[in-house]
Design a protein around this nucleic acid. Structure first.
Lengths: 114, 114
DNA sequence: CCGCATCCCTAAGGATACTG
DNA sequence: CAGTATCCTTAGGGATGCGG
């Protein structure tokens, strides 16, 4: 008999929902992917690389910071620049991100073929 | 030198966004997880298992059907029942779903510890 | 350059009631 | 039982302009 007890299913369901809650919306996983794969970036660079408007970008980065997935470093240049990096903890999301990249690529191939 | 050409990055970015577009929202990955891990379910069973209200559930299932991720089978019982199953193609999302389950479980552990 | 404030619009999602 | 219709609330996200 497979493990379909209520408890096990509930845990699986809530685990997915917990993850979705942290990385909700159109942008968070994209931003993490950029920071993980391309390293530290400044605010403006992220805005250009992602196509996100400054208001949304600011909000998303702030939420990612609250979840300890990105770190923010202010550089005392003139005028100031701000650098964002993926934290080590964000690395634990890499397998999610990579799986999504692979699936998106395969899915596009499928659409072309059909 | 790492492969950071514009083209490669663009492909990675759009692959993520393509995936996010297909499985957007709070519910689609949860529904697929249930159907993949627990097998075929009727509309009412899905509603109870997921906690989704009928209107939303109907809409989400319809969108998943359009993307060929679930199949819908009407059974000529009295009154009719309708069974939903994950398609073989939905199996290709399993690595995404499993990665999210693992991450959600680890993340909850982390929150408990800190 | 960073990123907040304001304003606005659309999309997502929930509650309830109802019909085939 | 399945799922649509109606109504409503909230969240997501875009544009622009200003201040540090």
């Amino acid at each position: 008999m497979k493990d379909h007890s209520d408890l096990a299913c509930t845990n699986v369901h809530s685990a997915i929902q917990d993850t979705l809650y942290v990385v909700n919306g159109k942008w968070k996983l994209l931003l993490l992917s950029i920071l993980i794969n391309e390293g530290t970036k400044r605010f403006g660079e992220l805005a250009r690389a992602s196509g996100i408007s400054p208001r949304i970008l600011s909000k998303e980065l702030h939420e990612l910071e609250l979840n300890q997935l990105v770190s923010r470093q202010v550089c005392p240049t003139k005028p100031v620049t701000v650098e964002y990096s993926a934290t080590p903890y964000a690395g634990t999301l890499k397998e999610v991100i990579d799986a999504m990249i692979r699936w998106g690529q395969r899915h596009k191939q499928k659409l072309v073929r059909s």
